[in-house]
Design a protein around this nucleic acid. Structure first.
Lengths: 234, 234
DNA sequence: TGTTAGTATTGATCTATGTCAACCAAAATT
DNA sequence: AATTTTGGTTGACATAGATCAATACTAACA
């Protein structure tokens, strides 16, 4: 029996040492509620986890791997909002009004996701004000982040946006420099709202100016200050 | 004594018939908590209510007038997020982490705003799960709206964005057609992420194609279907 | 009532960025 | 090993949209 187990790698939420800090405010009884109908699914790199427009049936927890969150726009153009890494909750945007997904989530690497019942989650929000506050904080931080991206994409021009993407990968996604890239040029283009060709052209310029080094799948930011300056200037 | 009154136009939140539906789930005791330290301020058209980056000391309720909410970006370029009309809560984004304002709010017309204590507001969120849920719904709807704008601004080109702005004014802001415009071309440009000149040029094209009529401050959408089509095509 | 200041409009020009098409490299498949 | 497929790269070209500068309008004001 493969992939039908209630949970493969863990002894339940109470013992989980890889859960989102959001859950720290829950008592062990409440964690048991979260754990009750929970199940785990593994995704291969490239597989879609849920699609924009479909019913949002569960709250999702990324426990391993890497996932891209993106908006499907017009003419099959996407807008990559963010790349999330574990531990991280996602997919909760529609659960308090129409239970729909407002973005698409796709695995960028092999990933494991816990599915938590929306009702059980909501029950904890209702019973535990600390948890509710943490959840609201999480939502608001997401909004603030989105606002920042909003301004960056509408006001910076190409070099600034590409610099932002590189800094984001090094500082937030892979948390290392150099880093091995597991995300396609197309994804990077969608992250910066550029055409793939334009993104590549700027990358080439950075390389020629020795701001970055590239060999194969590895990218190293060699002049961090220069890149930060480009990001700021726009 | 002018403008130091605790409240000018009302007999407290319990009796307020102009409060955001968000507050419908509050008991009269809880409304009294909201009402406790509340005060009212009137703004003249053009006056700033709060500025991005400053301390977010209160939750605000727009009770009359019209207010623009915008992000201050780079090189003093703004991004107008939305125009809000009463009854409407605003200014609550930072209250669960750093108590800062993440956008600027400025009166577009003479406006009245109720200032509610953050602590009292939070107390109600903690004590009343229905209220907490409504508040979360409000926040998430805001996010979904922002996502839509995000895609529109990054993927549509000029005519689509101008069409969106006109439809927004007619359907959501003034809720009438024709409507008298109380918002500058600069604001409209910032709403569509265009230069003022480009916005005006497209407006002129719409006029020449008889899609809209303009005289003075009045705009009428005469070919609604055509405008909607332009909005969809992008 | 003339003047000033702010906002709206128009035209001319420039440039950032997208599109299209060709080519290459690596990986997957036969 | 040969071949198809997929994703990355480069160059040539087209264009959406910004910028700059001049002009027109409107409203406040002396």
């Amino acid at each position: 029996m493969i992939n039908f187990k209630r949970s493969v790698n863990c002894g339940g939420c109470s013992e989980c040492n890889n859960k989102s800090p959001l859950f720290n405010s829950l008592s062990s009884e409440e964690l048991e509620i979260i754990n009750k109908d929970r199940f785990e699914v593994t995704y291969k790199s490239g597989e879609m986890i849920f699609k924009q427009g479909t019913a949002s049936t569960h709250i999702l927890m990324l426990t391993s791997g890497l996932v891209k969150i993106y908006l499907e726009g017009y003419n099959s153009k996407n807008l990559l909002l963010k790349v999330i890494k574990p531990p991280r909750i996602f997919g909760a945007l529609g659960i308090y009004f129409d239970n729909r997904n407002y973005y698409t989530a796709t695995a960028l690497e092999n990933s494991t996701v816990c599915f938590v019942s929306v009702d059980n989650f909501k029950q904890c929000v209702r019973s535990n004000p600390d948890f509710a506050e943490k959840f609201i904080e999480h939502l608001n931080r997401n909004s603030v982040y989105a606002f920042g991206r909003f301004v960056d994409l509408t006001q910076k021009q190409m070099p600034g946006r590409v610099a932002d993407a590189l800094l984001y990968l090094a500082n937030d996604v892979y948390e290392s420099n150099p880093f091995k890239i597991t995300i396609s040029r197309q994804d990077l283009a969608e992250m910066t709202s550029l055409s793939k060709e334009s993104f590549i052209r700027i990358l080439k310029e950075f390389k020629e100016e020795n701001i970055i080094k590239m060999n194969g799948d590895f990218i190293e930011i060699s002049k961090m200050d220069a890149l930060k300056k480009i990001s700021q200037v726009g």
